[in-house]
């Protein structure tokens, strides 16, 4: 009886572990965008290991739990992947650089603005104002028919070969991306990873698509010609 109890407890633990791990992995492959046709991946170098201080992110969350959601994500972007506008005042005489990085290099709560500063995914770019501009009016010059089109799908997507294998990356990666700026604590909560401390993302997570047109498909010659 005692043995049975222990066995059933262990079984319960195993089932619980499977559920927990399964759910946590599921949490990481919630889709934000899929791009089958993109052939333009940059080197590994640009999108990993940019943030040495990323580990502090978990502490930041504990103190000021204000997660970002997708609506917030799109509140200052014209489309998915567009450079966000700056929601606070900026000094115009500088290109940004250190002044911006002071808060945005590591992200976290900024008393001055009473808000969490998002982590910049590309702290190596200094000319911030090249892409990020402030909002100085609510009015439009002329109305526009521009529509925000997201490729977000709520349906399940298979970006895992096996239940427990690491999900592949379902979206495009651009020059300016750093996985952790979205997938860690201050990013969109849907896509937060459970293990931000590992940082070498592409060790396990590979892009879904291949660069097919770059090269002819490799076909091994038959050993024997008939």
């Amino acid at each position: 009886m005692k043995r049975l109890k222990i066995i059933s407890f262990v079984v319960f633990l195993m089932i619980a572990a499977v559920i927990i791990i399964g759910r946590s992995i599921k949490a990481t492959y919630e889709k934000t965008s899929i791009d089958e046709n993109d052939k333009s991946l940059n080197s590994e170098h640009d999108s990993i290991l940019l943030h040495v201080n990323i580990l502090d992110v978990n502490n930041i969350i504990d103190k000021n739990a204000r997660f970002k959601n997708t609506a917030k994500y799109f509140s200052n972007r014209a489309y998915e992947g567009a450079p966000p506008t700056v929601p606070h005042e900026v000094e115009g005489t500088q290109i940004g650089g250190k002044a911006c990085l002071k808060c945005h290099e590591t992200g976290g709560y900024v008393d001055k603005f009473k808000a969490n500063a998002p982590i910049v995914p590309h702290p190596n770019f200094e000319n911030c104002i090249q892409c990020h501009v402030p909002v100085n009016t609510k009015n439009e010059f002329k109305d526009s028919n521009w529509e925000l089109v997201t490729n977000k799908s709520s349906s399940e997507i298979t970006n895992q070969a096996l239940l427990t294998s690491p999900p592949v990356i379902p979206h495009t990666i651009t020059k300016t991306d750093d996985c952790l700026s979205c997938h860690s604590g201050l990013g969109i909560k849907k896509v937060r990873v459970t293990h931000p401390e590992r940082t070498n993302c592409r060790q396990c997570h590979v892009p879904k698509y291949t660069q097919k047109d770059e090269q002819d498909e490799f076909i091994r010659k038959p050993l024997v010609n008939n």
């Binding site: 559920i19 927990i20 791990i21 759910r23 946590s24 949490a27 919630e30 965008s33 899929i34 791009d35 089958e36 046709n37 993109d38 333009s40 959601n69 997708t70 609506a71 799109f74 529509e147 925000l148 089109v149 997201t150 490729n151 977000k152 799908s153 709520s154 909560k189 849907k190 937060r192 459970t194």
Partner: peptide, 29 residues
């Protein structure tokens, strides 16, 4: 702790987000 929270209160992480102009089409670059 995060994982447990996810499993106990899936809503925390999987709350329906506002979906804007949803399209099933893939982008063509």
């Amino acid at each position: 702790a995060v994982v447990s929270a996810v499993s106990l209160f899936p809503g925390i992480v999987f709350a329906e987000e506002q979906q804007v102009n949803l399209t099933e089409d893939n982008l063509n670059w």
